[in-house]
Design a protein around this nucleic acid. Sequence first.
DNA 1: AAACACCCCTGCGGGC
DNA 2: TGCCCGCAGGGGTGTT
Length: 285
Amino acid sequence: MPELPEVEVICRGLRPIITGRVIRAAALSGKRLRLPIPQAAIDGFAINQQITAVRRRAKYLIIALANGAGLIIHLGMTGKLGVFPREIPPARHDHLRLRLDNNMELRLNDTRRFGSIQVLAPDIDELDFFADLGPEPLEDKLTAAYLLQRAAKSQRPLKNFLMDSHVVVGIGNIYANEILFAAGIAPQLPVSQITRPVWQNIVQQTREVLERAIAAGGSTISDFTNASGKPGYFQLQLKVYGRAGQPCPTCGLAIQKASQGGRATFWCANCQMSHRQLVSVTIAS
DNA sequence: AAACACCCCTGCGGGC
DNA sequence: TGCCCGCAGGGGTGTT
């Protein structure tokens, strides 16, 4: 489900609701997520700790605690976080409930259980935990120069490259497709062929698409909801994702669909430049 | 390195 | 109506 915009929307929604609260108890479903829920570490480091901050890194949510520990939550494909009054019965697929000091519960619901919860112990540096991740796309470290350097000598298709969290974080299948449509570049293009000004445009379109998606409350394809249980609306602005066979919003040509790395790719063969077109444009300019 | 297959899991919609 | 199949926003591993 959630890519960077959805996680950011949840983060911003959760922050004012749970910051300052104290975690009093944890209740587990007993089922494992992609990783087992670390009950002993939660009991040891999180119970009776005050929540001091709620942050996002990549597609992870970080709930920072007063003792320096942190809960690191990944929502996988179907994860949802919400805060509910204690008296509301837990829902099917609620796998972790954290009882707070105000009779509310922070609940993680995850149908497919591809999400994860990890505990960052107080003596572990968060930077080390996330050491393998690339830069945040909405921060200054993502530059055309960086992407040009990372892409040198690589024949990887552009879309796969953008979805690689070692290269840049937060971009999943929906937004990779949308960003490349906005940038006017074919998703199959080998990255070593891409010139600096084109990378500059990709960086700019990445930021614009992600920012617009955050502003719209994220994309609700089937079940995404924010921390208050409300859906997002960016799916209404999607131009290619999920629109195979429908007319391109720009030129009217049917949107194409193919598989790349086991994920569906959607693009307009007319509006998104192939390698050949890119070369001819570069020569002309 | 990088491409691919396959794994984790549940639910939904389409086709028959 | 029901059943089976493919597919779905994530990421990780192991094999060529």
